[in-house]
């Protein structure tokens, strides 16, 4: 029996279907990323699980109990908001203890949990400050501490890092992941950032237009995208998609290489993007625009001829009609020089 089970969850407003017939299971201790472009229904899903939004249809089961109609406070879950949702008039300590006081937890128990949480998120000397005196990263830690002291087995996180700068985001990513493992938390993490999802999650649920597009381990989504949408969404720079007869062929930029002997070049450089560790080169290949990624610094002039190739095993095939993944047609040659 899975820990959290979502069955046929739907949410519909007057004329828009935000979430349609979404079903998934989460095991205890799993870190699940709900990934998708903005407006795909991931935040709505999270809010319905939290009880802050009422589903139009479907059930939510936590630990085998149906919590669909329970009040948010009765669901035994905690949540970290994108805005942190810290109470501006309360000190850090009072913010963290807010829920324990509301639930009338005994004073010595409150103190124990507070001390532990503060140590875990490293907030020692900030306890008596007000949120307005803290930096974004520190606010984030207070929000985490508030989730930790509640000792709820399920923690929902709604884009918790999107208000932080890039460096801090990287730090907090690994910190949150480490905390989750240490405490054995089950985390449902909403994000639109694929790097966050790929680097933190045990499993990614990729949503598109209110529907589950693919679910699986990060490498599964990357190596075996179930549809054209997944192929285009996961990976940066995105997968190159070429039309080939009745099907679409996708090839990742890092799988394209130069043959070296350019007597018969098949592509010309359109522009180059130097990014430090590698250079992304956009070329014109038989009328199609293709991006390839080369290690190091390669600033090639526009119109420069190149001869590119890739291995057939790295090709992804999709149906033109449905956009779904297809098996590659058998071909005699091991490597194709296109």
């Amino acid at each position: 029996m899975s820990f959290l089970s979502v069955k046929g969850l739907s949410k519909q407003w007057a004329d828009t279907q935000a979430v349609s017939d979404l079903s998934f299971d989460v095991d205890e201790g799993e870190f699940i990323a709900l990934l998708g472009p903005s407006g795909c229904g991931k935040s709505t899903t999270l809010k319905m699980i939290a009880g802050l939004d009422t589903p139009s249809a479907g059930r939510i089961l936590l630990n085998g109990q149906d919590i669909t109609d329970r009040a948010p406070g009765q669901r035994r879950l905690s949540m970290v908001f994108q805005s942190y949702a810290l109470f501006p008039h309360l000190s850090v300590k009072e913010n963290i203890l807010f829920g324990l006081k509301a639930r009338k937890v005994a004073a010595n128990e409150q103190k124990q949990r507070l001390d532990r949480a503060v140590e875990l998120v490293n907030l020692g000397d900030q306890l008596h400050k007000k949120p307005s005196q803290l930096s974004g990263g520190q606010c984030q830690r207070v929000a985490l501490a508030r989730a930790i002291v509640s000792q709820a087995p399920l923690c929902l996180m709604d884009e918790p890092l999107s208000n932080l700068d890039a460096k801090l985001r990287n730090e907090m990513r690994s910190e949150i992941r480490a905390l989750q493992k240490q405490l054995g938390l089950t985390v449902l993490y909403v994000t639109h950032d694929q790097i966050e999802a790929m680097s933190m999650a045990d499993r990614i649920l990729l949503l598109n237009d209110g529907k589950l597009e693919q679910s699986g381990a990060p490498e599964a989504l990357y190596n075996q995208p179930a549809s054209l949408f997944v192929a285009r969404f996961i990976g940066h720079p995105p997968m190159n998609i070429l039309e080939k007869g009745d099907r679409l062929v996708g090839i990742r930029p890092e799988h394209i290489r130069l043959t070296g002997h350019s007597q018969s070049p098949n592509a010309t450089v359109m522009h180059c993007d130097y990014q430090g560790s590698d250079t992304q080169i956009c070329v014109d290949h038989q009328g199609a625009s293709i991006t390839l990624s080369l290690q190091g610094h390669h600033l090639l002039p526009q119109g420069h001829p190149l001869d590119i190739t890739w291995d057939r095993q790295h090709e992804h095939h999709f149906s033109t009609q449905t956009g779904l993944r297809q098996t590659a047609p058998s071909q005699p040659k091991e490597s194709s020089h296109v």
């Binding site: 009880g51 948010p72 406070g73 669901r75 949540m79 908001f81 807010f98 829920g99 509301a102 508030r146």
Partner: peptide, 20 residues
């Protein structure tokens, strides 16, 4: 968000009014 956070923390209507 503040009310939602408080609701999730188990604060009832009166607590939310009094403390927020």
């Amino acid at each position: 968000d503040l009310y939602q956070a408080a609701e999730l923390e188990g604060a009832g209507r009166w607590t939310r009014f009094r403390r927020i």
